[in-house]
Design a protein around this nucleic acid. Structure first.
Lengths: 207, 207
DNA sequence: GCCGTTGTAAGGGTATTCCCTTATTATATT
DNA sequence: AATATAATAAGGGAATACCCTTACAACGGC
């Protein structure tokens, strides 16, 4: 299932049932779908990389804390923005949450409009990140079908070398380079050299 | 003067003279150059885009506060990491500082080792940002020397179109496209199409 | 042993790019 | 009025890329 097929959901993680309910109700008034979890572990069990939307998590919870949940999500390369909520905040915790990549940090009690606007921008950001990521995995899977030699040729070609130079560097014939090169274009579905360069640059930080 | 020629300095902005002195002394023990300012305005008057290093700013100051200074620096497209220091922090201020792009947020009194390691990583990050930025301005100035027509041709070529297609799209002859194209390569100092594509991608977020 | 994949190489043809020169027109600058 | 710059166009030739086919050797799986 691709990210685009997934419905956008706000995942609410809070041990306090009334806090969960009021938050989900508030989101519902704006037509935003939500799903509540009573503990960090419950959400981690549910979480998959296909989830799409954003996450709202309370700091103080029995079992795993909100910060630990955030850490675990980072380790799993979660892409959804995380909004941290808390009733008893101190500065070091807030800073740590932000440095761990929290999208925002809200103190309870929150102003409804503030929270909603925060959620909406978080969902917007989540969409952008998800789109960029699905693009990355698409081209990454294309590159995985390349043989070693094809990859070597591709890198040298993308660096701006002509077939002749590539052939000399790899100690093979220009004709062979031609063949590898055409296979690279075929497998990556790139219709021009510039497209191939863009594909490689997208994955530069991923490879 | 280019950024590379500039010495790396930690700019300390704090209204408390003893705080400035102790901080600068601490930095000096590690061989880190520093420069102290008694107010946000004093630093803003000194600031230029050529400055290189990082900035340490106290929140509570008469006149402009640390957050206002941060805002002003953002408006001026400051590239140096900003470390916010404060003795009396509350969560909203800390969050605001982080959301405004602060590199870190430390509470006084600070642990010397913590502060030093923070400064060192900030300086490291500053170098990387500065390097990337000087690369951007270098290629940006190259693109400014292009005529409108040359820019049009460049964009279409970088998108992967052949001279023939570009000529059809612009309603001009293939030969003319050839000339514009060669001028683009000459002015941008790109030695291959792939290099030109990379140049355009570097500036995609800047143009 | 047979088959699919991979890497290698060649022949032949077409399309494209790259580089040289020359030339006209319009616009802006001096 | 003279000059410079930008945009246009053409001819010609060398280098390169692109696309087709055929071919062979090595290697692993069935």
């Amino acid at each position: 299932m691709r990210a685009e097929d997934q419905t956008e959901v706000v995942y609410v993680v809070d041990d306090d049932p009334s806090a969960r309910e009021s938050l989900c109700w508030l989101l519902g008034t704006e037509g935003i779908a939500s799903q509540a979890f009573a503990s960090a572990q419950a959400f981690l069990d549910y979480w998959s990389s296909d989830c799409s939307g954003c996450i709202m998590v309370d700091i103080r919870m029995p079992g795993k804390t909100g910060l630990q949940l955030q850490n675990e999500l980072n380790a799993r390369h979660n892409l959804m923005p995380v909004i941290v909520l808390t009733g008893h905040a101190d500065v070091p915790v807030a800073i740590r949450a932000m440095k761990q990549g929290a999208y925002d940090f809200l103190e309870k009690p929150y102003a409804d409009e503030e929270l909603l606007s925060c959620v909406k921008t978080a969902l917007e950001l989540g969409r952008e990140i998800s789109d960029a990521e699905s693009e990355k995995t698409r081209v990454a899977s294309a590159l995985e079908n390349l043989t070693e030699r094809e990859r070597e040729v591709m890198c040298l070609v993308v660096e701006g070398n002509t077939n002749k130079v590539v052939a000399a560097q790899l100690g093979i014939s220009e004709k062979t380079v031609e063949i590898h090169r055409s296979r690279v274009m075929e497998k990556t579905a790139a219709r021009s050299l510039s497209e191939l360069v863009r594909i490689c640059l997208i994955l530069k930080d991923k490879i």
